[in-house]
Nucleic acid binder design. Structure first.
Lengths: 353, 353
DNA sequence: TTTGTCCACCAAAGCGCTTTCAATTACAGT
DNA sequence: ACTGTAATTGAAAGCGCTTTGGTGGACAAA
């Protein structure tokens, strides 16, 4: 008489099976699609489960099967700036769709980058997750060997140059995107092209810089360190970098920004100086297609290399679930090409007076 | 001989206790701080747990205690616009800190607002969480009675006008913030003040509008619907709204924006028209103090009503954990006052020619 | 010596599932 | 009627922990 069906305690398997006059075994089998259950019984069980709103307890199921039915996302928050990467929300939204469809939970750990180790070890030893997504890989990222050692399946959003062991990843082709962007500006006649980049410990920033430099070198244009900035990609950073560089002698006539948010700051600096974007100074930015920061409505504000981070989330989550289900398969990779969208922020290089 | 300590399978209680020559009972008690364990034994156990990197399996512990040791965040994604609220990342970061400190996991469900019901019911019947945080409350939000009915502890980020049953919440005083902002502009001599607001089904938008209207009415200034916009708070929305309103006869001389992102769009429209922000058109915005969108470095770009959403996350998480631990206590509330920060985007109303 | 209290520890049940192994029934084949 | 096989169903063990209800020993009091 302890817990009746109308009680607020959720119904459990035992109660459900008693209701049906069946054993727990049969009910469990019916709900999990095992073949050795007659069609009639299965239907009866499924109906009952629906009307009583029965769902197996994740914890009990996990204990019994040895699976966690959960994927962990470990979000590093730079302890210095308390900065949360803005792409994170959209990425998670994409991944979440996939998990929901596959019956997985998503568990999140926010962690300042000092004691990441402990987080991963904890997730493993508490058996809290079946796998993890690694966000914001840095060069030679120590998390990759660590996860290998822990034998915890994982997938990386981005890549980590310098890591030799193979692993599953999905990345935008940052190098080619920025090479293309640089060439686009070169074709417009720009010679002084600035790069406002993310922190260079981050792998994506390294690759973007490579693409940028490769394009310049191909045209025998010297790489000028006074035209390169790297830092956390905030609006203020974009603003200050641009303001400084426009104040230099031989100021840039074009700027490549690593994110839309930086680009907004750059625009502010340009306009503050009384210059016109797309005429006096051109801007190309990378655009992660964040939902709340669309790059204009029909025609883009900024010329941009575009790649949806939400899409990346969806795909990478799927890749990880695959890896969890088939631990023996070779790691998968996916390299997305960004598309170059021409907007109003670029134009021919201004003629020198 | 199945799983030895150097194996990759995490060590479990049984193995640990065998290593120590103690019973599982004693080891469990030692680790959980129960008194009936001698100091010497406790130390021995704790040391062993550390060297073997033992942590109890969350699932097993949860099963045994009946607790989930997890809090759910249900993030609604508007199915129309696939929009993820940008404040979400910072809020989560704040809440995550609290959970980590208290040994809770955070589990996330991304859900389009159609079948929210099922998500909450699912979390309850699967026993996946001990409580949930409700994001983005709307007026008369149906989730609140639902959660009451389910007897699932919850805490709301914001409030839901029209809900009669008491519940735990934390909110910014949106009404007073926007009343103050409006008065600030009125004091500067502005009479035509526009409001670019969030979607009016959202409770915060309703309250902000109320504050705005109250201030106007107190000065006998008619509320002009042609100066009010409401929509999803993107940059483009801010831009279009501002562009339209500045094109009207009797255009506004000041604008109140509901978010920094909207304000950035508004600024774009202003400058595109060749006007100067802070001189021709003043802007006040609400600023959630997002980490990647700081409102200027030392002096704020925008005059703003400011309230840290990350802080809100930290606090609300704590309130929810309290509620989970003491289900019989009366619901707590916290109303945060936004601070008005004067920046460069506001100035006296321009004289009419 | 006996009794009574603590103290420190342990065996075993139970949390809600899955899964192995076994049992029951129905029915075709001989 | 008897055996063999396939089709269903069940009993019970086990997943890794907590917790209840002991047990045995040391030590002080009687």
């Amino acid at each position: 008489m302890k817990a009746l069906w109308w009680t607020k305690e959720p119904m459990n398997l035992k109660e459900l099976s008693e209701q049906l006059g069946l054993s727990q075994t049969t009910v469990s089998r019916a709900l999990n699609g095992y073949p050795e259950v007659s069609a009639a019984t299965r239907k009866r069980v499924e109906d009952a489960a629906r009307t009583f709103n029965y769902r197996p307890s994740t914890r009990a199921k996990g204990l019994a099967t040895g699976q966690a039915l959960a994927i962990g996302h470990v979000i590093p928050v730079s302890s210095k700036h308390e900065m949360v990467n803005p792409i994170f929300g959209d990425f998670i939204a994409g991944a979440g769709e996939t998990y929901a469809r596959q019956g997985y939970e998503m568990i999140l750990s926010i962690v300042d980058d000092d004691n990441e180790d402990q987080i991963y070890r904890g997730l493993k030893s508490r058996r809290a997750v079946d796998g993890v997504i690694v966000h914001g890989p840095r060069m030679d990222d120590p998390r990759i060997p660590l996860l290998h050692e822990l034998q915890l399946p994982f997938a990386v959003h981005g890549r980590a140059s310098g890591c030799t062991t193979p692993y599953t990843w999905l990345d935008v082709n940052n190098r080619s995107a920025f090479e293309r962007a640089t060439n686009f500006l070169l074709d417009l006649g720009h010679q002084r092209i600035a790069l406002i980049n993310g922190l260079e410990v981050m792998d994506f920033a390294y690759r973007r810089r490579n693409g940028y430099e490769a394009a310049l070198k191909a045209q025998n244009i010297p790489v000028d360190l006074s035209l390169m900035r790297s830092g956390e990609m905030t609006e203020v950073f974009g603003y200050q970098s641009t303001r400084d560089m426009l104040g230099q002698d031989d100021a840039p006539t074009a700027i490549i920004a690593s994110s839309l948010i930086c680009a907004l700051g750059a625009r502010r600096a340009i306009e503050e100086r009384g210059l016109v974007m797309g005429k006096d100074v051109s801007i190309i930015t990378h655009d992660d297609a964040l939902s709340y920061l669309q790059n204009g409505a029909d025609i883009p504000i900024f010329t941009a290399t575009r790649s949806s981070v939400r899409d990346a989330g969806r795909k990478l989550a799927m890749m990880l679930l695959d890896a969890v289900a088939n631990p023996l398969n070779a790691p998968q990779h996916e390299l997305l090409e960004a598309e170059l969208m021409v907007g109003g922020s670029t134009g021919p290089a201004p003629r020198k007076d």
